[in-house]
Amino acid sequence: MNTLLEQLKNKRLIWQGSQQEQSFTGNSTGYAELDEALQGGFPQSGVIDIHSPIGIGELRLLLPALRYRQQDKRLLVFIAAPMQINGEMLAEFGIALEQVLIVQPNSAEHALWSAEQCLKSGCCDSVLLWHQQLEIAQAKRLQLAAEQGDALHVVLRQNRQLSLSLPVNLAMKLNPHAQGLEVQITKRKGGWPAHSFNVNMSKAWPELTLNQPTDNVVSFPRAKVS
């Protein structure tokens, strides 16, 4: 085999169509539709890149998985959130507030630095970072830090037309839907992108979803023609 190709394969820089991720173990997302699409759930560690408008339910999509991951007693970290994190809402949903850390850096560079330090420290199980511009080299550093600290890193960014595919475990695009969210998986390690589908949040968050439209059409019998 070509020496260069062999070196690239050894560094895991080439993915083959027949290659299977034997070591993948997914943690349930809390939503059956999403678990099925991801063949088990979110990865145990690594980076998830989420493109989403702000305030459409992107945090609600993550909360069931974040609550489950708190069982290992490590920290859940929110970095540079564009909104005020509601502690009462987190507590009501079952998030242990004594395991929550909120960081508000004064620059995008400090936010990236904070995320990397939290990830590789081993003290944090899940780190959520709101960040707009993420370059390939930065994504690689975050991925390495997440693997080093056995942590899950979620980067939330607003929808933008991006030409570069970042080296992350999972990438998704979110859009609002009457009963929850429309989700499109654009990249999945060891798998293929998937068509968009809807995640129904009406059971967990009935007050934040719209009721299914009812059929108010009443049919009348046709008049007989003599």
Score class of each variant (00 low, 15 high):
135 E>C: 10
113 W>Q: 07
154 V>A: 00
153 H>G: 14
192 W>S: 09
190 G>D: 05
142 L>C: 00
136 I>T: 14
111 A>D: 08
200 N>R: 04
186 T>K: 11
98 E>S: 13
211 N>C: 04
210 L>S: 13
210 L>F: 12
103 V>D: 07
118 C>G: 04
180 G>Q: 03
115 A>N: 03
154 V>K: 06
173 K>D: 08
143 Q>S: 13
154 V>Q: 05
115 A>C: 15
141 R>E: 02
208 L>A: 15
163 S>W: 00
101 L>V: 11
165 S>E: 15
199 V>Q: 06
193 P>T: 09
95 I>G: 09
139 A>T: 03
165 S>F: 03
148 Q>E: 11
169 N>R: 13
105 P>Q: 06
124 C>Q: 05
147 E>W: 11
197 F>D: 01
193 P>G: 10
210 L>N: 14
197 F>V: 07
142 L>K: 07
133 Q>L: 11
120 K>N: 08
156 L>M: 15
101 L>P: 03
96 A>T: 09
177 H>E: 09
188 R>P: 02
207 E>K: 15
203 K>E: 13
116 E>G: 01
115 A>F: 03
169 N>S: 14
178 A>L: 10
145 A>G: 07
141 R>Y: 05
129 L>C: 06
132 Q>L: 10
105 P>M: 01
170 L>S: 08
105 P>N: 06
197 F>L: 04
179 Q>P: 04
172 M>Q: 10
178 A>H: 11
164 L>W: 07
116 E>F: 08
118 C>M: 11
171 A>S: 15
136 I>S: 09
122 G>C: 09
150 D>G: 04
181 L>T: 06
131 H>T: 08
175 N>V: 03
194 A>W: 01
111 A>Y: 08
111 A>M: 13
119 L>P: 03
98 E>G: 00
154 V>W: 12
104 Q>R: 14
172 M>V: 12
209 T>I: 12
147 E>F: 03
111 A>S: 15
147 E>N: 14
206 P>A: 13
195 H>I: 07
189 K>F: 10
96 A>Q: 15
122 G>L: 10
146 A>W: 00
203 K>D: 12
128 L>E: 02
171 A>V: 08
130 W>K: 01
107 S>T: 14
207 E>P: 02
147 E>S: 12
149 G>R: 07
198 N>E: 11
211 N>Q: 12
100 V>A: 08
156 L>S: 09
115 A>Y: 02
109 E>D: 12
167 P>K: 09
125 D>N: 14
146 A>Y: 02
140 K>D: 05
128 L>H: 01
149 G>M: 07
116 E>T: 13
190 G>C: 10
175 N>D: 13
114 S>W: 02
173 K>A: 06
148 Q>F: 03
122 G>D: 07
195 H>D: 14
123 C>W: 04
116 E>W: 06
156 L>C: 14
165 S>Q: 11
188 R>H: 11
